[in-house]
Measured scan of single mutants.
Amino acid sequence: MGFKLLSKLLVYLTASIMAIASPLAFSVDSSGEYPTVSEIPVGEVRLYQIADGVWSHIATQSFDGAVYPSNGLIVRDGDELLLIDTAWGAKNTAALLAEIEKQIGLPVTRAVSTHFHDDRVGGVDVLRAAGVATYASPSTRRLAEVEGNEIPTHSLEGLSSSGDAVRFGPVELFYPGAAHSTDNLIVYVPSASVLYGGCAIYELSRTSAGNVADADLAEWPTSIERIQQHYPEAQFVIPGHGLPGGLDLLKHTTNVVKAHTNRSVVE
């Protein structure tokens, strides 16, 4: 069995187990497998329904001669939608809004960016022009300005110390501490036991640490421990890039980060 097929099978099995364990909360999309990078042309966006009122959005972007996937989250909030992270750029984010209108038909009224990198804030200006209120932590807003990236308009308070959590509509926002970046936030959907790890969490097929220019490698494993301790009931975990899975993604990420750190020390 090929690795790609095995990865998709694991996603399907995880979703099936969740649907059985929580039949009222989960209505997993039966329309197909989780979209992969090879299936999404740059400039297009796919939506994948995880649970009743919960979707991931998947886009792709060219970077350094390669094409990478990027995940975000959409959560229903009454007759409105909360968006977590842009679709990595203005063109993708405009396509995301169009796809949401086509498939869901509810307005996106608020959006949260989970850290300051372009795959999370690139497209904020498109959201703002569409009347979406954009939010991020003060740290993310400051770092985005320093980096020359787009800056969300509103500040999220109460997320300055490791372990801080605040309720934001249908989700809980959690600051686990520094990891992929010093400002990275985690998003949890309690009604569906869905954990969105953003770039602080890796997919299972990833074996290298990737972009760690703004990471705190020493603190990252401790931050992941905080996530595990705060959300032990999480059933569906979405990484910032690639295929979702279960809580095993947290341990896998820790292993990859520690291996990278150990290699760096040896070198």
Rank of each mutant, 00 (worst) to 15 (best):
K4P: 06
L5P: 13
S7W: 10
S7K: 09
Y12E: 10
I20P: 06
S22W: 15
S22E: 13
F26E: 15
D29P: 08
D29C: 05
S30I: 09
P35R: 13
E39G: 14
I40T: 15
P41R: 11
G43P: 07
G43T: 05
V45Y: 03
V45C: 01
I50D: 01
G53V: 07
W55H: 02
A59M: 03
A59K: 05
D64W: 08
P69T: 15
S70E: 03
S70A: 03
G72R: 02
V75Q: 03
D77C: 04
G78A: 08
D79K: 11
D79S: 11
L82Q: 00
I84E: 00
T86N: 02
A87G: 04
A94C: 04
L97C: 00
A98W: 13
I100K: 01
E101I: 07
L106T: 09
V108P: 08
V108A: 08
V112H: 05
V112G: 04
S113Q: 04
D119G: 04
V121N: 03
L127C: 00
A129K: 11
A130M: 14
T134H: 00
P138G: 08
R142I: 12
V146I: 11
N149R: 12
P152N: 00
T153L: 11
T153R: 11
H154M: 13
H154N: 14
E157H: 10
S160W: 10
S161Q: 14
S161G: 14
D164E: 13
V171F: 02
Y175P: 01
S181R: 02
D183E: 05
N184A: 01
N184L: 01
V187S: 01
P190I: 06
A192Q: 13
I201S: 05
Y202I: 15
E203Q: 06
R206W: 15
S208Y: 08
N211T: 09
A213V: 13
A218W: 10
E219K: 08
W220M: 01
T222R: 11
S223G: 03
S223Q: 02
I224F: 03
R226M: 11
R226I: 15
R226V: 08
R226P: 04
Q229G: 13
H230D: 07
H230W: 09
Y231N: 07
A234K: 04
V237D: 02
P239A: 04
P239Q: 02
L243H: 15
G245F: 01
L247W: 15
D248C: 07
L250D: 01
H252N: 11
T253D: 01
A259K: 09
T261C: 06
S264R: 10
V266R: 12
V266W: 11
